[in-house]
């Protein structure tokens, strides 16, 4: 039961982040690229003022998987690095904390470019 509740919270909060994104797509002129940028920046800000940590405590992956979680990770990394190294940390903390995800995306991009055939959307129709 406890596990079920945990996953339900993940589902609801994660879904909510996506629902807000869809509302922005459907009812504003914001392009997907702008929405993603807003999400990351919002994540950094919410992380900075301490709002995001309670959400991750509550919803786990429901808060860390959406791109706001990426922003939160950046802010968390910077915070820790500034505490340890002072001003230098402002420049190193963000990338250090998010290195895994970014590097994985680049490497995955290279591997896919090497191994896969180019896509063709008309095939899906």
């Amino acid at each position: 039961m406890e596990i079920f509740m945990e996953y339900l919270k993940t589902f609801l909060i994660g879904g909510l982040f996506c629902l807000i994104g869809q509302l922005l797509i459907d009812f504003t002129k914001l392009t997907p690229a702008r929405i993603l940028v807003s999400y990351v920046v919002a994540g950094v800000i919410m992380g900075a003022i301490g709002w995001y940590e309670p959400i991750t405590d509550f919803a786990g992956a429901g808060a860390t998987v959406p791109l706001t979680g990426f922003g939160y990770l950046l802010s968390k990394g910077v915070k820790q690095a500034v505490m340890e190294k002072g001003l230098l940390g402002a420049f190193t903390g963000g990338l250090e904390a998010s290195a895994g995800g970014i590097t994985a995306a680049v490497i995955a991009g290279l591997i896919v470019a090497l191994l896969f055939k180019r896509g063709d959307k008309t095939k899906q129709m």
Binding site: I25, P32, R118, G119, D120, K121, T122
Partner: peptide, 18 residues
């Protein structure tokens, strides 16, 4: 051509857009 137009004017073929 759908694919040559798409990559010039919009997004890559495998990009997930609506």
């Amino acid at each position: 051509h759908f694919c040559s137009a798409e990559r010039q004017f919009r997004f890559p073929e495998t990009y997930g857009g609506q």
